[in-house]
Design a protein around this nucleic acid. Sequence first.
DNA 1: GACCCTGGTGTACGGTGTCAACATTGCTCC
DNA 2: GGAGCAATGTTGACACCGTACACCAGGGTC
Lengths: 204, 204
Amino acid sequence: MSYHHGDLRAALIAEGLRVARTGGAAALGMRDLTRAVGVSPNAAYRHFADRRALVLAVALEAQDLLADAMRARIAGISPDLPPVASALGRLRAVGLGYIHFARAERGWFELAILTRDDGPPGANGPFPAPFQLLLDALDALVAAGGLPAARRPHAEWACWSTVHGFADLTTRGPMRHHDTATVDALASYVVDTVIEGLTSGGTT
Amino acid sequence: MSYHHGDLRAALIAEGLRVARTGGAAALGMRDLTRAVGVSPNAAYRHFADRRALVLAVALEAQDLLADAMRARIAGISPDLPPVASALGRLRAVGLGYIHFARAERGWFELAILTRDDGPPGANGPFPAPFQLLLDALDALVAAGGLPAARRPHAEWACWSTVHGFADLTTRGPMRHHDTATVDALASYVVDTVIEGLTSGGTT
DNA sequence: GACCCTGGTGTACGGTGTCAACATTGCTCC
DNA sequence: GGAGCAATGTTGACACCGTACACCAGGGTC
């Protein structure tokens, strides 16, 4: 057995992703991961400051997986649709993709929404990919004429709040054990409700 | 010092509530709590099956505190308002009370939204008090004529998703470090947006 | 007074994250 | 090609955790 591992950092992240898929962040133990990779516990400290750093590294990968899932759903939209309908479909896809991923991959989702505490989003580096997809979808909706420009500001927070809240309620919360059909129907309803609130004339 | 404690269970919960206020659920350690109360670690096991059970017991108290905060906010609504405006104000108070509590008392909030996994809400015993407040507010809005009865079903999930999502985003999520004024403004905007989506005519 | 139930104590086990000191390897430079 | 060195691994230890097991103090009841 070779003394050096080759790429221990990558191996730990890969194994972390594997076990976190079903076990969530709690399954990412220093000793467990190093054991699975076939290395002594402290070897990990050559690549990660502490457990938290390792978890965050795995979380970044999970965030990419979430973004991929959302993009895949966006790609499934029929290309020959009128602009507004297309933009609306894309916005819906962003939300429903988020929700579907949360339910299909709870462990990964738990990681994906983990945030390192280094100020507001976008302050250090670009926005996280899933959030950027939402911003793009909203901008596209404005460009297509499906949303008045005056109502664009802060719309991302309304959307993200609803979608994220629904995802949380149906994974960790009280709707955890509801059957898939019910949850899917509710997801559509909930997403449509925010979009309705966004697009219809209001007070502010 | 008397051999028997008197009411160790209550003492543990009280101390738990005290430390969880700033430390969240993670601060609820068997050894820490028993130490603080002046008792041996294993004494707790006469009253709680395991750590999880203790945390859930404290969580129940926290849930009551959340409900109290929401009720206090509801009580602050001007009594001489037209019925619809009053009902709307009450619904808003439910949402904003939830959000405000989440931000003012993160530790307690983290506990309050903890759910034991015993089926859907209401299946075993009554609904949690905070959720019941939401149901009541929605029903009252229908009674006052502010929401068509046809649109009442499932409305609670749209409301709860948005409000809970916003609470999560502003406590654990990316808006964690935004200043209070900004968050307060966004909270109103977001809550109003769902209500708008609920009350204005839609597709379904 | 003998009994047991309730609610505490002490000790111990296996687990964790992490620190400090040491060993091994491959790369670089004279 | 050998010396030196940085990178990367290992071993051992520490403090801490949740918890199982055996034991014991006190109060209530027959």
